[in-house]
Amino acid sequence: MSADAPSRFAVLLDSDFVYSFRKSRVTLIATLVTVSIIMAALLAPWIAPHDPFDVATLSLLDSELPPAWAEGGDPHFLLGTDNQGRDVLSAILYGSRISLAVGFVSVFFALVAGVAVGLISGYFGGLVDAIFMRIADVMLSFPTILVALLVSGIVRGALPREMHENAALAVLVFAIAITTWVQYARTVRGSTMVERGQEYVLAARLVGRSSASIIFRHILPNVMGPVLVIATINLAMAILIEATLSFLGVGMPPTNPSLGTLIRVGNEYLFSGIWWVVIFPSLTLVVLVLAVNLMGDWLRDALNPKLR
C-alpha cells in the first residue's frame, strides 16, 4: 500500500497471487480449459460447422446420425445429429454461449447484490438488517422455477413480441439472480457480524475510519472466502437450473437451445441408444463446471490473506 511502490503491474507479477497460480498445474489446466470453452463459445458463429438456429437449413433427412467415426456417421456431422437433424457439435458451441451467459451474468448480479446487502445488514444490524433479511426470507421461500414462471409471464405480457426471444435470456438471468443473491447475503451477513466484533475493526473505528472504508477495506476481504465457494457452485447451479426451467417452457426456446436444454432433450433418449445427443453436451458441461470450480478453489485460497 505504500505510495512509492514500483508499478502496480510489477507488483502483481511478483506477488504470491501470481506465484501460486504458476505453481499449480491443475489450476493452469483448468484455466486453459475454461478459456478455450469461453473462446469457442464466443467464436461459435465463425467456427461452428453449421448454424443450428437457422431452421431453414435443418433437414429431418439428417436426423439422428451417429458421430462421424461410428458406423453410419456422416463426416459433415462430427458429433452426430439430434432428432431434428441439428449438428450436435454446432449446437454445443452455440448452446455454451447461452449457458455461459446465463451463468456468469446471473452470478455476477446475485453476487454484487447479495454481498452488498450482506455487508450492510451485518455491519449496521437493527432495522436495516431486519428489513433486508425478511425480504431475503420472501425470496428464499420461492423456488427459482416459480419465480421464472412469474417473471416470464409478466415479461411476455408487457413486452412487444420482437423482444421475446432476447427476453428469454434476461428472464432466466433475472429469475436465477433474484433467488440466489440471498445465499450470498445470508453468508456475508453472518461473517460480517463476526468480523464486526474483532479487534482490528474496533481499532479502525477508533482511528476514525468511515464505515464505508471499514467495510470495503477490512471486512470485505475477510468474508469473500465463502462467497467465492458459493459463487463457483452457483455458476454450475445457474446453468443446471436453466436446464430444469426449460421443462416448464420458460427456458430457452427449443429452436434456440442452451447446453442445459440440449441435455434435457437428450435425456429422453438415454434408453434408446442415441447416446451422442446427451453424452456430448453433458461432457461439455461437466468439464466446464469442473474447470470453473477448480479455478474458483484456487482463487479462494489465493485471495484469502489468512491462508498465506
Binding site: 454450475a236 443446471l240 442445459g260 435425456n267 463446471v289 469442473l290
Partner: peptide, 13 residues
C-alpha cells in the same frame, strides 16, 4: 474432483 462431477450433471440425468 469427484464431488464436482457429481453436481455438474443436471439432477434429472
Amino acid at each position: 474432483i469427484i464431488s464436482l462431477i457429481g453436481i455438474s450433471v443436471p439432477t434429472f440425468v
